[in-house]
Amino acid sequence: MHAARMTNGQEGTREVSYYPGCSLEATARDYAESVAGAAELLGIKLNEVPDWNCCGATAAHSLDHRVTLNLAARNLALAAGRPQPVVVPCALCFNRLKSAQAELMADGAAVIPEIAELGGNYGEAQVVELNSFFSAGWALEKARSLKKRDLTGLKAVCYYGCQGQRPPAITGHPAPENPTGLDRLLKALGAQVLDWPYKTDCCGASHSVPRPDIVHTLVARLYERALAAGANCLVTGCQMCQANLDLYQEQIAQEMGRPVYLPVFYFTELIGLALGHPQAGRWLDRHMTSPRPLLASVGLAL
């Protein structure tokens, strides 16, 4: 499905464009490093979109619509004519770029001249969420064949959150109420993947700063369900979800009046773990809820 360009020379290397987004340069540096590591292991060359700017997502809600549209338009223009698809690790950026793209295609006139001068074709970028790119058939096969160890003992619930699949008219997601990409990837890596009903529920997103009570309520609900399913960890592909589930775990557990120990992995970290990336331990040490005790208890210590 993804027509990634096969580069000459290195057998099986794919070159794609990469739009990291602001979070991966700041609080989600751990994610950024594991993305780079996992891509390298799977033979994917991430070619960063030059001079990209903020997609406008986080503040979209409180900013003028025309402003957020133009912010996204500039990125789409910069990504045109470059290797496709454009993979995006942040679910919010993905959603914003896709939404803006749909709107721009319907009404190109909304763009101001400075952007139009970039000469871009807004429809050209094939914007793809990183986790769906990494869970495509070819990637699973590659992961399976390069795997150094099975992630046996990890009982994972995959948490997809909101922005990667909804609304399907924009994201083009084939199964917005029951995405399975991460489930398949985790199975390929040898983890036990559990079913649970809260795959696509909301974590509270950017309310963590202005309204922490909202995030705490929603995250507590996710913990309850994950534990009820018998999980010993959560797996996500969104740095906002990861942060909300990981950072406040101790405090939320206190509020819940029960112990909670649920490390929250990025799927890219688990690719690194199974395929033996030398830096995997360093990525994991940036979590607030350390995954090390869990890994040690299931014989996967680093």
């Binding site: 979070s23 340069e25 986080t58 409180s62």
Partner: peptide
């Protein structure tokens, strides 16, 4: 206010500095 803080960051650097 949170939105305004984001706006300031985008305006000053082009990106959001968390």
């Amino acid at each position: 206010k949170f939105g305004e803080a984001f706006w300031d960051s985008i305006y000053e650097t082009g990106r959001v500095d968390e």
